[in-house]
Design a protein around this nucleic acid. Structure first.
Lengths: 311, 311
DNA sequence: ATTATGATGTCAAATGTATGTATAAACTAA
DNA sequence: TTAGTTTATACATACATTTGACATCATAAT
């Protein structure tokens, strides 16, 4: 999920904006987090711990005391694990101890498709919530979200599913993601992550996944939305001065409509060198051959951040 | 109302606008509420307590004394849910309260526009959250959301705002609404409320407001999304058998593209008589003259539900 | 008209709790 | 050494609770 899967207390402090002492006190007094320890006793945090701290900050900003915020999160965690038995009727849940991770994934997928088939948006969202809080975003995203969205699209194109099934399923995923990333509190001076669909593009969901990842990493996020006019992107960059701009291009349509698209963007990127411009998606992978100097291709935030570090 | 069912006195004060001292005094003197206590003696309120305090405020604003308001609520414990416009003994015209509310609204609006101006999505969402929990959806929707969205559109058309400011502001409102209504858990067998944009229509936000209202009223909600193909709506109705279908049509574009639109929909509606079909929005108000037999015009869920009852 | 009474919101003091920060002493790593 | 981590303790500020006082105002009694 992150560049690294563990953090020292100092890094956690920097990522959350909390002091190291406070992080320890929250652990001691309220059980806010439960980091593992190295042999020497040093605390070792994982990405989930960092997320939890950020969620606590968000709750505090909404009027919770830290004590109650922890209670609240723990309560919801409990609820999230009970939800398991809301499986559709035509599937009986197999809670055998011998289920491997693979079979569990395919069980989740089956449930998702069953929910989507009957247009049960909240069923989808509850399941995603459960998997998310149990296994984290990386697992959820790679093993469930992306394959699910992909096959939902397939089923629609193959006429296996009606359009409404595709729409409701996609929107359920979108709504889930929106709920997640708006539960993080980013510090005022955090760098900005701007996500936008390329003119002519209408698939926004991958961007929401990226935004959730960015929010977890401590960015403020802004979403420019579907198909903004060409100059809207420039206006936004000019005003917001984001650290990163990510553009989605899942189909070939945009390049058909405007063959100059990439060079236009490259030129825009060259004018704002404080901002890193990336383009991603299937459409971009197919057509964006020349790795531009200022506009680059990236399919995952992981590779994106690696790229930034090596610039 | 919310998923969570306990609040500290601080949050209750924030939610109701009462001071913590007053909340305690009301409890001590009149038994206004009876919160449980934590081990340390701190008060723990539940959603009912908060509701009750809000009802008391409403009664006081209508002229009741606090003492009588409590007595009134206790006497009418079972019908007290609807305490709307009951005339009190000594009704005094309190214009001061009204004007302060007016200035408060315009203050909120100013803040919203300030946030929107700098593309601060989470600023918008936090403010909406505050107003929502303090004054409820009706107030928020009528006095802030709809005027705000309206003027955001204006500013964009008048070139006062750039497109990105319009997009980010609208999306912030959308995300806020999505977060709200997905926090409602409707029972499995609740009637379904299906919202969809008419083919050619791309404004989805009003539908999200409607969905939130429906969720509050206990409906399961489903959102079919932007511009579904003509048959997608029929497929969805056929499969999901919603109790209510609401269609949004804010512009005139759809009727220009397909002059038969209304009669097509009327025909669809006539085939599913268990389902109530409504169409709303500025575009519909302008063009939908003949009040159809099965497809009807409605601009608010209030009027919609009144209409259903009188059918 | 003046006074007494009661209702109500606000304030203050005394006491305990919650929470963020600071320091000391021991230990670890580079 | 020097900087960072650990535990433990101390402390200040903010917050919660109880109790009672007080000012204001409307209403009833004088």
């Amino acid at each position: 999920m992150e560049q690294r899967d563990w953090y020292g207390i100092r890094q956690v402090a920097q990522l959350t904006g909390l002091s190291t002492q406070l992080i320890r006190k929250w652990e001691e007094r309220y059980g806010a987090v439960a980091p593992r320890r190295m042999e020497n006793g040093y605390r070792v945090y994982n990405a989930k711990d960092v997320m939890r701290l950020k969620q606590l900050q968000k709750l505090i900003s909404e009027g919770f005391s830290i004590r109650n915020a922890v209670l609240y999160l723990d309560e919801n965690k409990f609820e999230a694990e009970i939800v398991t038995d809301r499986s559709p009727d035509n599937l009986q849940e197999n809670t055998s101890l011998y289920t491997t991770k693979q079979t569990q994934i395919s069980q989740f997928m089956d449930m998702l498709f069953a929910f989507g088939e009957r247009g049960d948006s909240s069923g989808i969202q509850d399941l995603l919530q459960k998997v998310y809080s149990q296994y984290g975003l990386e697992f959820l995203s790679e093993n469930l979200l992306i394959p699910f969205l992909h096959e939902v699209g397939e089923r629609w194109e193959m006429r296996v599913w009606d359009e409404f099934q595709e729409h409701i399923s996609s929107l359920a995923v979108r709504d889930f993601l929106i709920r997640q990333y708006s539960s993080f509190l980013a510090p005022q001076d955090a760098p900005l992550f701007l996500a936008a669909c390329i003119p002519g593009e209408r698939h926004e969901i991958m961007l929401h996944i990226a935004m959730l990842e960015a929010a977890i990493r401590g960015f403020k996020t802004a979403f420019l939305g579907i198909s903004p006019a060409p100059n809207a992107l420039e206006d936004a960059v000019e005003s917001l001065r984001p650290k990163i701009v990510v553009l989605a291009m899942t189909t070939s349509a945009p390049i058909d409509e405007n063959p100059m698209l990439f060079s236009d963007l490259e030129q825009l990127a060259s004018r704002y060198r404080q901002t890193h411009f990336y383009i991603g998606g299937r459409g971009a992978r197919m057509h964006f051959k020349g790795t531009g100097k200022w506009l680059r291709f990236s399919d995952s935030l992981d590779s994106l951040f690696r790229d930034i570090e090596h610039r």
